[in-house]
Design a protein around this nucleic acid. Structure first.
Lengths: 210, 210
DNA sequence: AGTTGTGAAGGTATTCACAGCG
DNA sequence: CGCTGTGAATACCTTCACAACT
């Protein structure tokens, strides 16, 4: 029995949020999480209920953040503590992630950056190595990289995605405005800003018009 | 009767895609759009069917891109040709959008940028004016800005969002990893890269495990 | 002959409501 | 006795299948 996709996505966010809140491990009730996330408390409880049969994490006044986050991580398959990622395309948007501190507290680690422009690779500084694009086939399997953040110019997006997949990448976060078809076994998440604006505008249009 | 949210989001993407493809106005069939988007053709046809009763856009061999895109735009409320946006926070990520060309072909236009650091405002170059944060209350209503792209550091996100909403912003695209609760009448779209990676990983975990 | 357009069927996710636990 | 946890009810979205149109 699989976990419903929306549930999995909410839980993933929730775990991240809990880890930020976890300084004191004081239990949070589902009603308090509703305040923090905007999702109804019964949805949150239902989501949590898929974790383990009789998960039994809750105490009298709610869920201890650390334990709950750990349980989520486990059933979502985040158990291997670190998921290895790479950045493909080191233009303005890509290079903005080179020192993006929020990665430190996450289960994702950037292991490599790629760009076809050798100049950029030599100029830019990062805490992980930068390689020319043609080394992908060697580097990605060697460092066991499964995820890619795609920030190349639009006209190179399709080609880059194809190459990444052939190198064994399983998940792509696509920052370009190009819609990439996902072959079976590969998950692609589009985070184009135009899509995001479109989604917001569409939602405003439908909720207002009703 | 409102349009289902997933339908609205797909249509929004589809319109964007069609406008890119529209150089020659040769009709596209729903099967061809399936190739381009990865969505099943019957879903696409069903989506299109909500546009107008007996929409009648289709010809013998499919839908002319330009007409279809126009119809989508209209029923989604994109009729006012330009939607005015602003960028809030001109650090590495925010400033990466200053010359992001894909906006030109979209219904969204960036009208202003804001940052609390006056130095940045003077150094950076953009095709729209840059203002210090305290001018938001004046500038946003005056330029009729409804959407904001939020790219401030995480610890300023909540405060900035609140201020934007009080200035009349209706939709926020939130690039920070902070989860922002959305008051009624305001739509917030989270595009944190960590959420995106989490969603991808969660989907891989559930589809594989099944 | 091929493609659209849509009511109806089938699946999923959300919401409800309340029993049960600490 | 407030809060969790979950079967059951509801609402929603997707998929199917085929009549209608060109």
């Amino acid at each position: 029995m699989g976990i419903p996709r929306p549930t999995a996505e909410r839980l993933s966010r929730l775990a991240y949020l809990l880890e930020q809140q976890a300084s004191d491990n004081k239990p949070l009730t589902s009603a308090e999480m509703e305040q923090l996330t905007g999702w109804p408390s019964h949805t949150i409880r239902k989501d949590i209920s898929v974790l383990g049969r009789a998960s039994g994490i809750a105490t009298k006044n709610g869920y201890p953040p650390r334990e709950l986050a750990a349980a989520i991580r486990e059933t979502l398959g985040f158990t291997e503590t670190e998921h290895n990622c790479c950045i493909v395309g080191l233009g303005r948007i890509g290079s903005a992630f080179l020192d993006y501190t929020a990665f430190n507290e996450s289960p994702f680690t950037i292991r490599a950056g790629f760009d076809s422009n050798v100049n950029r690779i030599e100029i830019l500084k990062a805490e992980f190595p930068l390689y020319p694009t043609f080394k992908m086939k060697d580097v990605i399997p060697r460092l066991d990289i499964r995820y890619a953040i795609l920030t190349v110019p639009p006209d190179q997006a399709a080609q880059a995605a194809e190459k990444l997949i052939s190198c064994g990448i399983r998940g792509i976060v696509n920052f370009t405005p190009v819609i990439l078809p996902a072959p079976p076994g590969v998950e692609i998440e589009q985070v184009s800003i135009l899509d995001a604006l479109g989604a917001v505008a569409a939602r405003l249009a439908t909720t207002t018009k009703e």
